[in-house]
Amino acid sequence: MACFLVPGTEAIMITGAALLLRKYEQNKARLNLGKGAAVEDGKKTGFSRKLFWLAGLLWGGVILLAFEHLWHGEVQPFFPFLTAAAEGAGAVSEMLHEMATVGVCMAILVTAVWGVMVAVSYAIEKRAVPETAEAAA
């Protein structure tokens, strides 16, 4: 009914956090450069970039699911936007129940898959560092 609103809310929050974190990382890198620190070798991916992966997954899913809801007539392009909102208290409570169950599970699954991706990427980066050190030696 409106389950995509839960991952949609998460997508907004994650995008905001990723933008803030990217700004912080850029400022930090600029400061480190000013102190004469070596430039990063570019092998490691910043956490803000990893957060943008999650934002990409969430936004992609939310856009396509919103289209599916439009297809099924559960969402409309005019006020009150959610068909259930115009159908009375029973439909609204059913919609909220679906958001609390299906919507929350969607957000959890996408975040969990992203967590696995981040863990794998850290493992790959860790493996890459000794390889470059060996090559340099």
Partner: peptide, 21 residues
């Protein structure tokens, strides 16, 4: 092409949850 991958995988995961329910 990353844009396409994120969109399709994101939607697939969400529809998987829908299918399980």
């Amino acid at each position: 092409l990353g844009v396409l991958c994120w969109m399709f995988w994101g939607a697939s995961l969400m529809w998987l949850v829908d299918a399980v329910f």
